[in-house]
Each structure stands twice: as structure tokens, then as C-alpha cells.
Design a protein around this nucleic acid. Structure first.
Lengths: 334, 334
DNA sequence: CTGTTAGCGCCTTCAG
DNA sequence: CTGAAGGCGCTAACAG
């Protein structure tokens, strides 16, 4: 496929009148090389525009600078934020992320993990704590560190970085109760696929139960979250249950849609109906009345995971659970 | 770095009582292998959980299944959308994207291109038509197909897929003039870094000039676009120029911020002040009054670029410019 | 249909 | 400080 037109170490060595290994050492700042030799080599490298072949390097040294990253989705800003965090830590380290996207499908995840592992990555970063048995087997056998992101509600394979979504759901109920709300509604999306939304929902219902309350009505979409869906579902929910005083949404995308429904229907957020989201997206905070929500620290999750891997890249490392926590954002809609 | 605990072709070959090359052929569905042999080999592979080492495979065959993708940013949904398009085309092809993010910095781009090329990718996908000389040299010398995305306002290296941002800016002026607007304002972000925003701005001003009009006022931020920035800048602009009848924003994020400013300040979009964006993001269309904007076809751009590469992966292919066009979305804010 | 031979480009190890 | 030999795991090319 590739035209064989690129230079090799041997070409550089020939022109610089040294051996291949000397060029290799210069390029990797390894061992000691005389300054004069180094400069001569570097001059030749620049002049030829030589680019090392890392494929060969990886094969020879049995270790790449790639980090496999498996994310469920890129449709929403949440995972790009995680990715930015990963990038931020990796930027100056020489490591390079290789991304795969599962669309919340565990079999796709399995294929991606196999495919990424075949590149001999230095570490793997995956999302969530649930995977197929074969995925788990491959990851364990790979001998590299594994970071599982977003969630800490189940035991991790190695490193887990994230927050308790169950607790966040529970705290949502408590927080809203403390603010005086009693008649709860819920608007959500596909919990089969989005496990973390499911954990929050469960925690939320547990919270209500602990308070001696229950959910008066809910509207749930059998698909991914979106602003448009949140807008429509809130309309449907209110048509059935006009007497709610607060509606909790599965995330901010949905909640912003809810706010838009209120605008269009002449409902005053908080005054007439309180709205509560999850994620703490910019868009919610830029609304005329900032959205009341829970801020998940997505950038921090990615950044922390990559840092932990860089810190002790060797497997097996110390198994760790890192709780990045969350903030309740008071906002003005609840 | 990696523990040497994974099986090799030789291990599989030994257990299946065939030669390495036979295992290799079975795994790649290459050449003809007797059904009986194939089954025996596959059984052993599954039982051992053997995962091929693509690093070695790539070195031996001088061709990887990786496609280097260099994007300027992931902070906004635009480039994740492009990435989804790329994924969509690549999904069943066996190719795998490797992502780099430049933060709109050309030197970072240069480093990333070098780093990605060192993995012997089957193709490279980059953003925009302007790169450092060294980046261009490396790309040309790589011998793989190069797709430059988003923009078709300058001559491409190989394949260009995108739209004319200059034309979009020009058409914005024409469209708004036709709708009766005469007193134009502009709210924008860092044009030094975001070239395409700069092209649109230029085209917009050219359009105004062709109409015998000029920009009455503008507010520009020396940083990346955001909803919050759009909101604040519109406030500032109106404080200085109260008599505008339409404001064009550098993109939808900024424009949605503008709409939020209007909500907060009691200004009725369109009736009191028209607002116009660029991108056609979901969020703008989910507003109580859908944003008037130009829809860029981001998913299509990524999808088309990847398809074109798959269609004729060999370099040099036919140099091509593919105009994915755009739609003016009438909306209700202009 | 199956096997043998000879590298791919680089890095590790061991000598100078 | 520099070099020579050998091999990483796989596959192209050529036998049988």
C-alpha cells in the first residue's frame, strides 16, 4: 500500500557517517553521544526530513507510545471533554491516544478493545465498569494498566476514575426536598444503554423512597438524549401531570430542552416549575436563568486517569478508585 | 514495558500443527486454506485467546490500517460531528482512526502530523488548507492520500472536502439584505486562530460592500467562541450601537449566547433585533424560536472524506475538490 | 493447498 | 562514547 519512499535510520546513518544505533540514540536522547556527533546527526535528520518509523521501534522494543481510549459516544460534549482531559495530561508525554467509539454497544466495545490491543498500547482507557467477559479477559491478559472512567459504583479491574452516579441521584432527591419540593416528575432517556443515567435514576428513586415520597410521573424516551427530546417529553409529562412542582432530567441536554418548553409554553422556571439537570454543561449555565444541576468533572476525570497511568505505567500497579466527586450547582431553575 | 505474556503466531502454529504462515493466512482470509485446516486453526486461536500483533504485521507488510486524523478542537460539537462521519464510513472497513488535536496551533499540527505519520498510516485526514511548510513537505513525502477537511477556499494538496466559507459569509450578507435588514452588526471570536471564521467574516464584509453597505459595529473576542462570550459581547455591542437591526455571529455558539442576552434584556429576537449564526447546531434549532443560521454539513464532510479515501486509497490519486455545500436555515430569529 | 526463506526498521545486548 | 550482531512477530515471494 505505502510507497517505499521514506528514509530509514540506515539512510541517515550513511549520510551522517555514523552507525544506525548512534542515530537511534541521538533521536531518543538515550545514552551518551558526543555533542559534535549529535549535532551532525540532527542536522542530517532535519535536512532529510527523516521521520522515524515507530512501528519498527515498537516491535523492537515491545512497547508503544499509544494509549487505547474507548468511549461510548461523541454526540454530546461530555466525552469530548473527557478526551480533552486525557489530551491535556498526555500532551507533553509523548503518548498518543487512539480512539474508538462504541455507540454504547458492548459487542462493539469488545471488537474495539481487541483491535486496540493489537497495537500493543502502553495502557487502555475504557468507559464504565461493565464489559463482556471476553473484553475483561483480553484486558486482563494484556498486561497493561486499565483505567475505567466515569463511574465508581462497581469494583474496577485496575484503576477507576469517576463519581458515584447512584449517590448523585440520591443527593438530587435530598437537595430538592430540602429546597421544599415535594411533587416530583422525571424526564429521561434510554437507560438500557446509558448505564450511568440508570444509576442516577435508581439513586434518585431510592432518595425519594427514603424521604417517604414517590415519583408522580415520568416520561422516558427509548433513544439517546437530546435537547429536542427533553423539550417534547416535558410537554407530554405536564399534559398528564399538571400538578408537579419539580422535574428532574436525565441530563442537561434534556433539561435545557425542558427550559425551552417552559419558554414556549409561558411557564416560569422555578416560580411555576422547578427543573434540575445533570452534567453542568456550559449551555445550561449560559441560559437567562442558569440551570440548577450537578456538575460532573469530566475534564478532570480524563486528566486524572491519564496522569495516574503516566505515574505508574507498569502493570500490575496499585488498584485504585479515584472519586473525582461532583458539585451541586444551585442555579436559578430549582 | 509490556510484559511478554501474549501468544505469538508460532505458539498457535505449534498447537494447531501447521506452519506460521498458514495461521497467518487463516486469520487474514488470504489465499486458499483447506476448510479442515482453517477450522482447526480457528479453534486453537479462540481457545488460546490469541490476539495478532498488528505492529509486527504492519512492519512486515508496510501498510497499516490506521488513518491519521488531525482536528483543531474538540471543545465544540462541530469536530466530534466530523469524527462521527469519519467513523461511520470506516466502521466496517477495518480501518481505525488515530486522533490528534491541535488547539488551532500550526506548530502543534506539525508535531502531530510527524507523530501520526510515524505510524505508517494508510491515509491522513487534516483540517483546513493551511499548514506549515514542513507539515506540507511531510505529508507530500508520506506517499499516502491526504484529505483536507472543512474548507475549499484554497487549492488542496490532494483531496479537499468542505464548503466555501467565504461564499457563506457573502451569502449571509445577501440573504439578510433581501430580508430587509440594513443596519448590520457583527459579534465574533478569535479570527487569528479560526481561519474559517476569518473567511466567513471577509466574505460577509465583501457582501456588504457589494451592496453599498458597511458594518456599523462589531465586538470581537480574543479567544475561542462560547455561548457565554456571545451573550456578553452582544450586550457590549448594543451598548455602543443601539440602532442595529441585525447582528451576524461568528458561529451558533456565539449566536445562542446572543439569543440568551435578548431573553435577559427583554429584546425580542427578529421583532426588535435579528440574529444570524453559523453551523446549524441542534441547540440553536431547539430554541423557542429556532435560530436563523447556515447549516454546515459536518457529518457529511467526515463521511465523504473517509469514503473517498477508501475508494482509491493509493497515492497519487486523482486530486479532487468536493464541495459539500451548505443550507441557509431560515429559522425565526432573522 | 502448504511450507521455506528472507527480510520489514528499529532497538537490545554485548563488545570494543 | 561508538559499533556489530541478532531478533521483535509477522508476511511477501517463491517454491513444492
Amino acid at each position: 500500500m505505502n510507497v517505499k519512499n521514506s528514509y530509514t535510520l540506515a539512510d541517515v546513518a550513511l549520510r551522517a557517517e555514523v552507525s544506525e544505533i548512534t542515530v537511534s540514540r541521538v533521536l531518543r536522547n538515550k545514552a551518551s553521544v558526543a555533542d559534535k556527533t549529535r549535532e551532525r546527526v540532527l542536522a542530517v535528520v532535519r535536512q532529510m526530513g527523516y521521520v522515524p518509523n515507530r512501528v519498527a521501534g515498537t516491535l523492537a522494543s515491545a512497547g508503544s507510545n499509544l494509549i487505547g481510549v474507548v468511549l461510548p459516544s461523541l454526540s454530546n460534549i461530555v466525552f469530548p471533554d473527557v478526551l480533552r482531559g486525557i489530551h491535556a495530561s498526555l500532551a507533553s508525554s509523548g503518548y498518543q491516544p487512539v480512539i474508538g467509539v462504541t455507540d454504547y454497544d458492548m459487542n462493539t466495545e469488545e471488537e474495539l478493545v481487541a483491535s486496540l490491543l493489537s497495537w500493543q498500547p502502553a495502557a487502555m482507557i475504557v468507559s464504565g465498569l461493565h464489559h463482556t467477559d471476553y473484553t475483561v479477559a483480553m484486558l486482563k491478559r494484556s498486561g497493561v494498566r486499565i483505567a475505567e472512567l466515569m463511574d465508581i459504583d462497581s469494583p474496577p479491574l485496575d484503576i477507576a476514575v469517576g463519581m458515584s452516579h447512584r449517590q448523585a441521584g440520591y443527593d438530587t432527591a435530598m437537595h430538592l426536598h430540602k429546597r421544599g419540593y415535594r411533587r416530583f416528575g422525571y424526564v429521561g432517556h434510554d437507560r438500557e444503554r446509558d448505564e450511568r443515567a440508570a444509576r442516577r435514576y435508581e439513586g434518585f428513586r431510592e432518595g425519594l423512597q427514603a424521604l417517604g415520597l414517590s415519583l408522580i410521573g415520568e416520561a422516558t424516551l427509548d433513544g439517546p438524549s437530546s435537547t429536542q427530546a427533553g423539550r417534547e417529553l416535558l410537554g407530554q409529562l405536564l399534559a398528564q401531570h399538571a400538578n408537579l412542582d419539580v422535574v428532574v432530567f436525565s441530563n442537561d441536554d434534556m433539561a435545557v430542552g425542558g427550559v425551552f418548553h417552559c419558554f414556549a409554553a409561558g411557564i416560569k422556571p422555578r416560580e411555576d416549575l422547578a427543573l434540575f439537570g445533570f452534567n453542568g454543561l456550559d449551555i445550561g449555565q449560559a441560559l437567562p436563568q442558569p440551570l440548577s444541576t450537578i456538575l460532573s468533572r469530566r475534564f478532570l476525570i480524563g486528566k486524572t486517569a491519564a496522569e495516574m497511568i503516566l505515574q505508574s505505567p507498569d502493570y500490575p500497579g496499585q488498584p485504585t478508585i479515584c472519586d473525582t466527586g461532583y458539585d451541586i450547582v444551585e442555579g436559578e431553575t430549582a
